[in-house]
Amino acid sequence: MAAAAAAGAGPEMVRGQVFDVGPRYTNLSYIGEGAYGMVCSAYDNVNKVRVAIKKISPFEHQTYCQRTLREIKILLRFRHENIIGINDIIRAPTIEQMKDVYIVQDLMETDLYKLLKTQHLSNDHICYFLYQILRGLKYIHSANVLHRDLKPSNLLLNTTCDLKICDFGLARVADPDHDHTGFLTEYVATRWYRAPEIMLNSKGYTKSIDIWSVGCILAEMLSNRPIFPGKHYLDQLNHILGILGSPSQEDLNCIINLKARNYLLSLPHKNKVPWNRLFPNADSKALDLLDKMLTFNPHKRIEVEQALAHPYLEQYYDPSDEPIAEAPFKFDMELDDLPKEKLKELIFEETARFQPGYRS
């Protein structure tokens, strides 16, 4: 834990890192770190609560700039109880001085990944967590956004079992017609939660990839272990087919990539493993919904509104309290091709509203 900075004593240090967030945020305490930044909790002297502050230093890398800009653009436009918001952003007053960006968010005690390492969940908890994931996802999908990296560590939890989806750095506007060349190379989302079509096709992607990830998360809540822990690309596919069985001819016809289709045709026939054999203690309604989410063919996979209306979630289902976005989200430009200098300018502009004396 960093010592509390005395008023006016300059930035606090946390594990050798400068955290320049005073005077409003003090009493910093280390939480963890990701690929390009550290997260601390801090005391907000204005709202009198502890908050989470993520320090991001992305400006050396085009990919990190892209992810940072995506996350900020999306989260500043989203407003939903099951999606983490941005409360404040701290950065230098000029673009030349801006080396880091500090993002202030609600402090959540833990995440689903940490929880599943230590606790076996009751059916009631599984049901409530799944409902909140789908409630947040309904809003995301209504904005025409794909999260693309749903996994237990991106689901934040607090002691009252509130759940918030975080990390929109890989999110995209849904565009089933656009052929994202190089899709697989830039697709760094965790393999275990990846839909089979991501490994088999490169053309376009749809909201059904997020539903697949939610199915993987439900299976993990039922058993405290990942359902498809593939060691590499082909191993991942083999794990999936080992449980779902061989795809039907109709399902194979959806695979545009001939090499991928021929690979699947070359494999020995596998039978589907019954879900109640894998999860003998699970609620039968939970397994019915799991089956509809972990469907090989993305066109037959359940959609988020149908999933919310499934009998497993009937005690929570309330369409009048499951809000959607006001308007579909649009990125003005494809960020993939922009140089990091341009992305830095866009991050600077996007964060201006939090600067003292800002006038829109």
Rank of each mutant, 00 (worst) to 15 (best):
I198F: 15
L265P: 09
A282D: 14
E60T: 00
S57A: 00
Y312I: 07
A143C: 12
L146Q: 14
N238G: 04
G16V: 14
K292Q: 05
S213N: 13
E220A: 12
L234W: 09
L265N: 06
K48E: 13
L267A: 04
S208V: 11
A260K: 06
P247F: 01
T206D: 08
R261D: 10
V101R: 04
Y139D: 08
T110V: 11
F296E: 03
A35P: 10
G10Q: 11
T185Y: 07
E326W: 09
N238H: 14
D44P: 03
S246Q: 01
R91L: 14
N154P: 01
V49R: 12
T185N: 12
R191Y: 07
K54T: 08
A286K: 00
K73N: 15
P319Y: 06
K48S: 07
D106W: 00
F331R: 01
I302N: 15
L264G: 05
N144W: 08
P280S: 14
N144S: 10
F19R: 11
L346W: 02
L112D: 05
D149Q: 10
L170P: 06
C161L: 05
P23M: 03
I240W: 05
V104K: 09
Y193P: 07
D321H: 02
L241Y: 09
S202N: 12
S153C: 14
I56M: 06
S57C: 05
S320Y: 14
I31D: 00
L287E: 10
H178N: 14
L264C: 03
D337P: 03
D321E: 13
G16R: 14
Y113L: 09
E314Q: 01
L335R: 05
L244E: 04
L264P: 13
Y128A: 03
S122Y: 07
T118L: 10
D111R: 04
N87A: 03
S320Q: 05
Q119K: 09
V49S: 07
A2P: 13
R148W: 08
D332E: 14
T185H: 07
I126M: 12
P280G: 11
L265I: 02
K203Y: 10
P311G: 04
I243W: 03
D111N: 13
E197A: 10
M293Q: 07
Y30A: 03
Q105F: 06
T68C: 01
C161A: 05
L112E: 05
K73V: 13
L265M: 12
S122M: 09
C161K: 05
T26K: 10
Y43K: 02
R194G: 13
R172I: 08
I89Y: 03
P268W: 06
N123F: 08
M199L: 15
K342Y: 06
K151D: 01
A3T: 12
C166M: 01
E197D: 15
I95T: 05
Y312N: 15
Q236H: 13
L150I: 07
K270G: 09
Y263M: 11
H178P: 11
K99F: 03
K114M: 13
M108Q: 05
N271K: 12
Y36W: 01
I217L: 12
K259H: 02
Y205G: 07
P11F: 01
D44E: 15
N144I: 15
F348Q: 12
Y193D: 11
Y43H: 03
P339W: 10
Y316S: 00
I95E: 09
T63R: 12
I165R: 05
I84W: 03
Y36G: 03
V273S: 02
L234A: 11
P356H: 14
K203G: 12
S223L: 14
I140W: 12
S284I: 04
Y358G: 08
K285S: 04
Y312R: 11
P152W: 10
I165T: 05
A219Q: 12
S266T: 00
N201F: 06
G8L: 13
Y139K: 12
L294R: 00
K151G: 05
A3P: 01
A5C: 13
Q97P: 11
H125A: 11
D106K: 03
M38Q: 12
F279P: 00
A7H: 08
I133R: 06
R77C: 03
I140F: 15
G230T: 00
K292M: 15
I72C: 03
H141M: 11
D336K: 09
Q132C: 06
L116K: 03
D177R: 10
L112I: 05
